Simulated assay, not measured.
Amino acid sequence: MTRRPARGLAMLMAGGLVVMAGCGTSPPPPPPGPSASVPPIPAQLNGNKFIADPCSAITVEQLRSIGFGEGRHEQTRQGQCLIVLGRSVDVTTSWFPPLRESISTLYSGRAQGRDAGNHWEEMTINGYPAVIVDVEENIPSRRDEGPLACRLVLGVDDNTLVHIKANTRGKPEAGPWLNDPCGAVKKMAEFVIGNLRS
């Protein structure tokens, strides 16, 4: 009679081990994050050229050809090229070391809720995917004059995102773009595409 309880205890212990082993298994994988429909790059441009020299993206002469005043390049920090036009107008082409974003990481990051800027306006420029991600609005009494600054990001290959920002602030050095920085960055993106083809 004493053997039956012992056998039952052994079975309970074995059952307990099975349950404990089940608790130690890894949890199921989390569900996949939200997906993003990423526009394609029509033909790979030379993103390495831009990473090595952000000033290769656009020239002062090209800016002058669309109405900007006299200007000069100033390499301000790693990953950025600043073009100063007059006293207060500037254009920057940049990336953000050590990150090397792409149009794919931009879209997927936004789908996952990461901050991509205060604006999101998708477009294509000469077939290449671009997004206006930041617009600095004018003061309320001058909103009809257009924004103060605008930043566009352009996918040039599968591994490179070019940031183009124009800060025109209604100054005469910006020529026809003084109240249209977003129009200016779109036009600059066309130059970037041509300059990075080689």
Results as ranks from 00 to 15, higher is better:
residue 164 I to Y: 10
residue 98 P to Y: 06
residue 117 G to T: 10
residue 105 T to Y: 04
residue 90 D to K: 06
residue 178 L to V: 04
residue 32 P to K: 05
residue 117 G to M: 09
residue 118 N to A: 14
residue 180 D to E: 06
residue 107 Y to C: 05
residue 73 H to C: 01
residue 91 V to T: 04
residue 47 G to H: 05
residue 9 L to Q: 10
residue 137 E to H: 01
residue 136 E to L: 15
residue 92 T to M: 13
residue 74 E to W: 03
residue 159 N to V: 10
residue 160 T to W: 11
residue 71 G to T: 06
residue 31 P to C: 00
residue 89 V to R: 07
residue 79 G to Y: 02
residue 171 K to L: 09
residue 195 N to D: 05
residue 194 G to K: 03
residue 127 G to Q: 06
residue 130 A to L: 05
residue 1 M to H: 11
residue 186 K to D: 07
residue 122 E to N: 09
residue 96 F to Q: 11
residue 91 V to K: 06
residue 29 P to F: 01
residue 180 D to Y: 01
residue 37 S to N: 12
residue 9 L to R: 08
residue 104 S to A: 15
residue 45 L to W: 08
residue 198 S to I: 05
residue 3 R to C: 06
residue 32 P to E: 02
residue 73 H to F: 02
residue 59 T to V: 03
residue 28 P to N: 08
residue 108 S to V: 13
residue 7 R to Y: 10
residue 83 I to V: 09
residue 123 M to E: 13
residue 124 T to G: 09
residue 123 M to W: 03
residue 83 I to P: 02
residue 114 R to Y: 14
residue 117 G to Q: 08
residue 42 P to D: 04
residue 40 P to G: 08
residue 3 R to L: 14
residue 46 N to V: 04
residue 186 K to G: 08
residue 31 P to T: 04
residue 107 Y to F: 15
residue 5 P to Y: 11
residue 3 R to H: 12
residue 137 E to A: 15
residue 188 M to T: 02
residue 149 A to C: 02
residue 67 G to W: 10
residue 187 K to A: 15
residue 189 A to F: 03
residue 83 I to N: 05
residue 58 I to H: 03
residue 2 T to L: 12
residue 152 L to M: 14
residue 100 R to K: 12
residue 121 E to T: 10
residue 44 Q to S: 15
residue 122 E to C: 02
residue 139 I to Y: 12
residue 12 L to C: 14
residue 128 Y to S: 05
residue 80 Q to S: 13
residue 131 V to C: 10
residue 140 P to A: 07
residue 115 D to Q: 12
residue 94 S to E: 13
residue 129 P to K: 00
residue 80 Q to R: 13
residue 45 L to A: 00
residue 26 S to L: 12
residue 166 A to G: 14
residue 171 K to E: 14
residue 5 P to Q: 11
residue 35 S to N: 00
residue 57 A to Q: 07
residue 145 E to C: 03
residue 61 E to R: 11
residue 172 P to R: 12
residue 57 A to D: 09
